[in-house]
């Protein structure tokens, strides 16, 4: 497989103090052409921030404090500015399709605006292209739907509009931030199918953030388990589901009542994750971990290769609890 995206040492800082609080990172991410990378973690673990940091669209007060981001461009690794990636190379799909569209513009115009921006075509041409895009993402009767206002569409259709905007200029990478969480189950399946079709058709690389372990198991080639802003375990999806090494991953999987169930949302684990302001020097999971020792509290374990081809950040990796 050939590389598509390579992020090293990404860190997100809160404010610009000399010793900033960093809710996320430092962490590394890679993505290959046509690959689907799943990111899983509890609420607040920093999944959304990570995706937003890739395009540098973090909420105010947060900044990308460190990190290099390279993408493959015609066989060469380059390090473009975030604004040259937005909508051109990388598209974003958000958790809440209802809030992602400007309510005061017709959806056809919203898509047309993005098309015009990236292709420089005429207004009339962008209109037909917008309708083509709507057809591509499976919106029925696209000519008519293009004249609708966002509030006149269902959640599923809105998410399709958002996807079409992310695709408007042939993005090669889609960042999906829980794209199905706000939708009901049947629509969820449709959107996931659509994303997989698009992935096959265009050879897209997808980073897929979700709470749904059963879903991630189906679609992800590799997964990253995030805890309190850090990746604690990563590797091929099959390996991680077969033999999780990190106590947190084990807890997540154990909390899953039936791994074969159609939908398995994360079950709560005893305790709560720490706030970014309370991050300790040691392992951030130590407070909730049955295996924690003095060593865990004194220093943070880094990601290390295991013999199974995965990477795990734990001094007690693989030890049965």
């Amino acid at each position: 497989m050939s590389g598509l995206l390579d992020i090293t040492n990404l860190r997100i800082d809160l404010g610009q103090a000399r010793t900033p609080v960093s809710p996320v990172g430092p962490l590394d991410l890679t993505l290959d052409v046509g690959e689907c990378l799943g990111i899983v973690g509890e609420s607040g673990s920093g999944k959304s921030l990570t995706l937003k940091a890739i395009l540098d669209v973090l909420p105010e007060g947060l900044v990308r404090g460190a990190g290099t981001l390279r993408v493959m461009e015609q066989g060469k690794w380059v390090e473009p500015a975030a604004k040259d990636l937005r909508g051109r190379k990388i598209g974003l799909i958000s958790q809440e399709p209802g809030a992602a569209l400007d309510p005061l513009m017709r959806v056809g115009d919203l898509i047309g605006e993005i098309v015009r921006l990236h292709s420089g075509c005429s207004r009339a041409e962008s209109k037909t292209r917008a309708i083509d895009l709507l057809r591509q993402v499976g919106v029925p009767d696209p000519e008519k739907r293009a004249t609708f206002w966002p509030h006149e569409l269902s959640g599923g259709l809105k998410q399709r509009i958002v996807i079409s905007m992310a695709l408007a200029c042939k993005s090669e990478i889609l960042l999906c931030d829980e794209p199905t969480t706000a939708l009901d189950v049947t629509i969820q399946a449709q959107i996931v199918d659509l994303l997989r079709d698009l992935q096959k058709q265009h050879g897209l690389g997808i980073i897929f953030v979700t709470h749904d372990l059963a879903l991630i198991r189906q679609i992800a080639d590799r997964i990253c388990i995030m805890y309190a802003g850090l990746i604690v375990e990563t590797g091929p999806s099959a390996e991680i589901f077969k033999a999780p090494q990190h106590p947190y991953t084990r807890a997540l999987l154990a909390a899953l009542p039936d791994i074969e169930a159609s939908s398995g949302n994360l079950q709560p684990i005893e305790g709560t994750p720490p706030n970014p302001t309370d991050f300790s020097v040691g392992c951030r999971f130590a407070a909730r971990c049955a295996l924690a020792t003095e060593a865990c509290r004194a220093a943070r374990p880094l990601l290390e290769k295991t013999e199974r081809g995965t990477m795990v950040a734990c001094f007690h990796a693989g030890v049965a609890p």
Partner: peptide, 22 residues
């Protein structure tokens, strides 16, 4: 602070377009 502004930025729209068109 709205999501659609963040999404417009993510889609590549500039600050001018966001302010004046949206």
């Amino acid at each position: 602070r709205q999501d659609f502004v963040m999404m417009s930025r993510a889609a590549g729209l500039g600050e001018g377009a966001i302010l004046f068109r949206h």
